[in-house]
Amino acid sequence: MSRYLLRIPYIFLTKGATSTTKTVLTKKGSAFVRPIHTCSGLLSLTRYDENTDWQKKLSPEQYVVTREKGTEVPFSGVYLNHYEVGMYHCVCCDAPLFSSESKYDSGTGWPSFKQAHGTWERDESHASIVRRPDNSLGHAGTEILCKHCDAHLGHVFEDGPDPTGERFCINSVALNFKPKAK
């Protein structure tokens, strides 16, 4: 049954498809990918240049984690046992993500934070992160992305300490630490 449900959108997309749409469909290899616009010259809504060559800018491990939604090996990250005072930034675009004040040892193997930088109570409108539903872990979860460059950072779980009760489980390779100026 699901095989037929997946083919129905493909039939509708290809029947009324323009040459641009057909090109995108064959390049991506998915029936669900279609162009958002047909005008050329429109820029990305995010702040980074969409022509950025992430493979040149990032190390291979950083690229796999941030751009391909990978996960570093547990207990291997450089920031797991790091307790210097300062700010953790996005390795891709340098946006401030987490303060060292919200970092704690969760014992899970990845750096953990109570809340994102710029969060006030439960309001994350000034934070540099966005949440996205994610089922890749085998159950319903929440992925954390950088708001400015869409880099995959990690996941958030509801087993954290007070006051938020949340645990932001973040990959070290997605972070760049900047110590507080003295």
Rank of each mutant, 00 (worst) to 15 (best):
V156Q: 14
R3D: 12
K57E: 08
N135W: 03
K103H: 07
R47N: 08
E121C: 03
E166W: 13
T71P: 00
S100P: 10
G118S: 13
E61Q: 15
G16F: 12
C93F: 00
S106F: 04
G29A: 10
E143M: 15
L42N: 12
V85L: 02
T23M: 06
T26C: 01
D123V: 02
S44C: 08
E121T: 11
L137N: 09
G86Y: 01
L175P: 00
S106R: 12
K56H: 11
H152R: 09
S112I: 00
G107T: 06
G86A: 04
F157V: 07
S99M: 10
P96Q: 14
P9F: 02
G138F: 10
M87Y: 03
H148E: 07
H148T: 03
Y4C: 04
A31M: 08
I129F: 11
F98R: 09
N171A: 02
V156A: 14
T71G: 00
G86P: 01
E61S: 15
V33S: 14
Y4S: 05
K27Y: 01
D150M: 05
H155P: 10
M1T: 13
L58M: 08
W120F: 09
E61M: 13
L43D: 12
F113L: 03
W110G: 02
D150I: 04
Y79Q: 06
L6A: 11
T46A: 02
D53A: 13
G109W: 00
T119P: 00
A95T: 12
Y104A: 06
E72W: 00
M87P: 01
G86E: 05
Q62V: 10
A116R: 02
K57C: 03
E72A: 01
S30I: 09
K15T: 06
L13T: 05
K147V: 01
T66L: 00
F113S: 05
C92G: 03
D159T: 07
K22Q: 15
T71I: 01
R7S: 02
P96A: 15
S125Q: 09
H126W: 04
G118F: 12
R131V: 02
S76C: 07
E121A: 07
H126T: 07
S30H: 04
Q62D: 15
G77H: 02
V78N: 05
L153M: 10
D53N: 13
G160A: 10
Y79E: 08
R3G: 01
F12T: 12
T142H: 14
T38E: 14
F32L: 15
G154F: 04
K114Q: 08
W120S: 13
G154I: 11
L5G: 12
